[in-house]
């Protein structure tokens, strides 16, 4: 990992490039999101997962980061977050979780286009099995990469006497995915090479975005799936009590 936050356009921007090694998920986690109980995946799945996790031949271009906004206002009644003149309709749940935040970090993290292209090519060539598993690996890699970004943000905030919340993304916890349009206004144009379609689809697809609250009373909890109503979600599958 490299890079420290630098001022840009009046904002503090953090931009990290990560090696695959920094974001490689455990093979068992991949099997879990594919549906298998610990140790129960068949040899075909275990060997394919291992082969994909051993593969680092230019498949990954992992980068992430975002913008620090030291001041942000949460309106609990209106379920809104106002950052630098941009209003985000974040919904009741996320507003509640960010209520004690004084500022926010707006994040973006991507695994790059390589894994998506590999998955698509495998499927087109008649190997949906490996293509599907590659897709799951891509989702976990971007999640693990974002964990590293989150850790860095926590460390940087800590140096300023602030703490961080969990991270929240459009499409989860009642925050509508169309709000990506507003969120992207708070990031530098083309940040990490990610684009946003009219229907709020991020490209590359293996990309996550959202906000992390910053504040003296902010808190990062280990488990928040109970806040979200998305039932069929890989993060939920990774939670033992979900």
């Amino acid at each position: 990992m490299s890079s420290e936050p630098v001022p840009a356009d009046g904002r503090e921007i953090l931009h990290l490039r990560l090696a695959f090694e920094d974001a490689r998920p455990p093979a068992e986690n991949v099997c879990t999101v594919l549906g298998y109980a610990p140790g129960a995946a068949p040899a075909s799945v275990r060997e394919t997962v291992s082969a994909l996790l051993a593969c680092d031949d230019g498949l990954w271009s992992i980068e992430g980061g975002g913008a620090f906004y030291p001041a942000a206002a949460v309106d609990l009644a209106e379920r809104r977050l106002v950052v630098d003149g941009v209003t985000l309709d974040i919904g009741r749940t996320v507003a509640g979780q960010l209520a004690r935040s004084e500022g926010v970090f707006v994040f973006l993290c991507t695994a790059g286009p390589g894994i998506e292209e590999r998955s698509r090519r495998l499927m087109a060539e008649g190997d949906p099995f490996t293509g599907f598993i590659a897709d799951a690996v891509g989702s976990l890699v971007v999640g693990a990469a974002m964990d590293r970004v989150h850790d860095r943000v926590e460390a940087l905030a800590g140096a300023c006497g602030r703490r961080v919340t969990n991270r929240y993304s459009p499409g989860y916890c009642g925050w509508h995915v169309r709000e990506q349009q507003q969120l992207f206004r708070l990031l530098p144009a083309g940040f990490c090479g990610v684009s946003l379609s009219e229907s709020s689809l991020m490209k590359p697809i293996k990309t996550v975005s959202g906000v992390i609250g910053l504040g003296r009373d902010a808190r990062r909890n280990p488990y928040t799936c109970r806040l979200c109503d998305l039932e069929d979600c890989l993060y939920r599958r990774l939670q033992p009590t979900a």
């Binding site: 549906g35 298998y36 799945v45 394919t48 008649g126 099995f129 599907f132």
Partner: peptide
């Protein structure tokens, strides 16, 4: 069985 095994079977079927 889970989706990966369904896909292996679908591949054999194809």
């Amino acid at each position: 069985a889970f989706v990966p095994e369904m896909l292996l079977s679908a591949r054999a079927m194809t």
